[in-house]
């Protein structure tokens, strides 16, 4: 009564959009960069990378990142640490195990994904408690 207007909020929208973006990634649709991680090529969307990682934000936000189609990360993370982060970017789920956590932590630090770094530390602390 007397409201100026109505807003319908679709609360599933963020996860539905992300799910579709992940499907586009898996099918190579509109992926615009190939990341060479430990020699393994991984296709992704720059827009998703820049939205999720401070490292990629600093690389792709400037003009220097415009023509980049293949990006190798020398001295960067190993694939077993990077791949779970790329899946996290597209699914919001980060798969961790005591065996992979240190590699994921190293990759998240390199990619400047501070919130994930904190989550990895929490996981490592709890999984190593006696």
């Amino acid at each position: 009564e007397g409201a100026l207007g109505y807003v319908r909020e679709f609360t599933r929208h963020p996860s539905d959009v992300l799910g579709n973006l992940n499907e586009l990634r898996l099918r190579g649709i509109l992926t615009d960069v190939t990341l060479l991680v430990g020699g393994q090529p991984l296709r992704a969307h720059k827009a998703v990378l820049i939205a999720c990682s401070g490292f990629f934000y600093s690389i792709f936000r400037g003009r220097a990142g415009i023509g980049v189609e293949v990006l190798s990360l020398p001295g960067g993370p190993e694939a077993r640490g990077f791949a779970p982060l790329l899946d996290f970017m597209y699914t919001s789920r980060l798969r961790l195990s005591p065996a992979t956590a240190p590699a994921v932590l190293a990759a998240a630090t390199y990619l400047q994904m501070e919130h994930v770094v904190q989550a990895c530390h929490r996981f490592i602390q709890t999984s190593y408690e006696p």
Partner: peptide, 22 residues
Amino acid sequence: SEGLVATVKEAGRSIHEIPREE
């Protein structure tokens, strides 16, 4: 099988915030 995967919900911010245009 992959065995049991325990899921822990993280309610806090997940990624960096891109600064708003000054």
